[in-house]
């Protein structure tokens, strides 16, 4: 827990020192404008919920994934990664603390996205199932952080983790049905999507914004949590294996 908090504290300090890592707060409102204009132009104001949820997911996932890569990259740039690995605290717990902090801050994008929708398009986003909505957000944030640790373990193997983490976000936008629901994607994609937690989270959030009753909320939330736990467990295991590998190859501090 101490390692997690140390990671969280240093991340807050880094965010002040590297404000460019919060760029999604500038892009999320723009995505909102683009999506709402497309849906309005297509005569589908009923898809407003999609247009307002998608930019938030894009921002949150980008923040999580970018920071997973950036956390590794910045340690390499600073020449601290070897000392970090040689410290008594768990490397994975430190990284988890850092990513969790960033994704939690990312929730602000909900407010700005919905404010843009209201001010520019007169669209009001109503939460019809508040508890399901809040539970989905909390579990999704934890799952995002856990999954990002799995990704960061892979980034340890790459020399330019930031570039890789940038590119790695796009497949998840598709597989997660962030803007286009998985149900309208080709059939062969669906099994893959079902193991991407974003697809469960996005469906839940959109459902929480609709007035119609929600079904199987507990099961669907459980799936998000399960995928998060699996992601973190896989990440922590992969981190251990990969650290042994780079300690063997001597490439830990290599840039």
């Amino acid at each position: 827990m101490r390692a997690f908090l140390a990671g969280a504290r240093i991340q807050l300090r880094f965010l002040r020192s590297y404000p460019d890592s919060l760029i999604p707060f500038f892009t999320a409102p723009m995505f909102t404008v683009i999506f709402l204009m497309i849906f309005r132009h297509a005569g589908r104001p009923d898809l407003t919920a999609y247009a307002t949820v998608a930019p938030v997911f894009i921002a949150l996932w980008w923040l999580a994934l970018f920071n997973a890569g950036w956390s590794i990259q910045i340690e390499r740039w600073n020449g601290t990664i070897e000392m970090l690995v040689a410290a008594p605290s768990s490397f994975a717990a430190v990284i988890l603390g850092r990513i969790t902090t960033t994704t939690m801050i990312g929730v602000v994008s909900f407010a700005e996205t919905w404010l843009v929708a209201r001010l520019l398009f007169g669209a009001t986003v109503r939460i019809h199932h508040l508890w399901a909505f809040v539970a989905t957000i909390v579990i999704t944030l934890a799952t995002m952080a856990g999954t990002s640790v799995a990704m960061s373990s892979l980034f340890v193997l790459t020399r330019n983790a930031v570039t890789f983490s940038n590119a790695a976000s796009y497949p998840f936008y598709i597989l997660g049905g962030i803007l286009v629901p998985v149900s309208v994607l080709p059939h062969w994609i669906r099994p893959v999507s079902s193991i991407v937690f974003l697809s469960w989270s996005a469906d839940l959030l959109r459902a929480a914004l609709r007035s119609t009753p929600m079904h199987d909320v507990g099961f669907r939330l459980g799936m998000v949590a399960l995928l998060g736990v699996c992601g973190f467990a896989l990440g922590a295991w992969a981190m251990r294996v990969i650290l042994v590998r780079v300690r063997t190859s001597g490439e830990l501090g290599t840039m």
């Binding site: 101490r2 390692a3 908090l5 140390a6 504290r9 240093i10 300090r13 880094f14 020192s17 000392m83 970090l84 410290a87 008594p88 605290s89 430190v94």
Partner: peptide
């Protein structure tokens, strides 16, 4: 980061 922030971080990592 400042010198103090650097040391505080490593102190936390050393539990």
């Amino acid at each position: 980061l400042s010198a103090r922030q650097n040391l505080e971080y490593w102190g936390a990592l050393y539990r």
